[in-house]
Computed example of a mutant assay.
Amino acid sequence: MKPSTVILLPSISPLPFFRQRLPPRRLLIPPGGVPPVSCSRRPDTVPAPPLQATTAEYVPNAVDGVFLGLFRSKMAEEVGWDSDKPGYDGLIDVARRLMMKGTNADAKDAAVRILRALFPPLVLELYKLLVTPIGGGKIAAVMVARVTALTCQWLMGRCMVTSIDLPDGTHCQSGVFVERCKYLEESKCVGICINTCKLPTQTFFKEYMGIPLLMEPNFEDYSCQFRFGVPAPSPELDSALKEPCLEICPNAVRRKEVTRDSQTMQQCPKA
Results as ranks from 00 to 15, higher is better:
residue 262 S to Y: 14
residue 265 M to D: 04
residue 144 V to I: 12
residue 135 G to P: 14
residue 93 D to Y: 07
residue 95 A to G: 10
residue 55 T to Q: 13
residue 200 P to I: 01
residue 33 G to S: 02
residue 220 E to F: 00
residue 178 V to H: 06
residue 260 R to P: 07
residue 156 M to P: 03
residue 213 L to Y: 07
residue 155 L to R: 08
residue 31 P to H: 06
residue 59 V to Q: 15
residue 57 E to Y: 04
residue 72 R to K: 14
residue 144 V to T: 08
residue 203 T to K: 15
residue 67 F to H: 14
residue 244 P to H: 03
residue 85 K to D: 11
residue 249 C to N: 00
residue 100 M to N: 14
residue 164 I to D: 00
residue 174 S to A: 12
residue 120 P to L: 12
residue 232 A to F: 01
residue 208 Y to K: 11
residue 194 I to S: 03
residue 212 P to G: 07
residue 43 P to W: 01
residue 49 P to D: 09
residue 35 P to S: 14
residue 66 V to H: 11
residue 264 T to L: 11
residue 151 T to D: 08
residue 79 V to R: 07
residue 128 K to C: 10
residue 263 Q to F: 05
residue 105 A to V: 03
residue 216 E to R: 15
residue 149 A to P: 05
residue 17 F to R: 11
residue 157 G to Y: 00
residue 32 G to Q: 14
residue 50 P to T: 03
residue 187 S to T: 00
residue 168 D to Q: 07
residue 183 Y to G: 04
residue 146 R to K: 12
residue 204 F to K: 04
residue 11 S to A: 13
residue 178 V to C: 04
residue 143 M to A: 09
residue 89 D to W: 02
residue 209 M to L: 13
residue 142 V to Y: 08
residue 195 N to H: 05
residue 101 K to M: 11
residue 162 T to F: 07
residue 179 E to R: 01
residue 46 V to K: 14
residue 221 D to C: 08
residue 40 S to C: 14
residue 17 F to D: 03
residue 139 I to M: 14
residue 264 T to C: 07
residue 173 Q to N: 13
residue 195 N to Q: 11
residue 70 L to Y: 03
residue 194 I to A: 12
residue 173 Q to R: 14
residue 218 N to L: 01
residue 139 I to A: 14
residue 58 Y to A: 04
residue 11 S to Y: 08
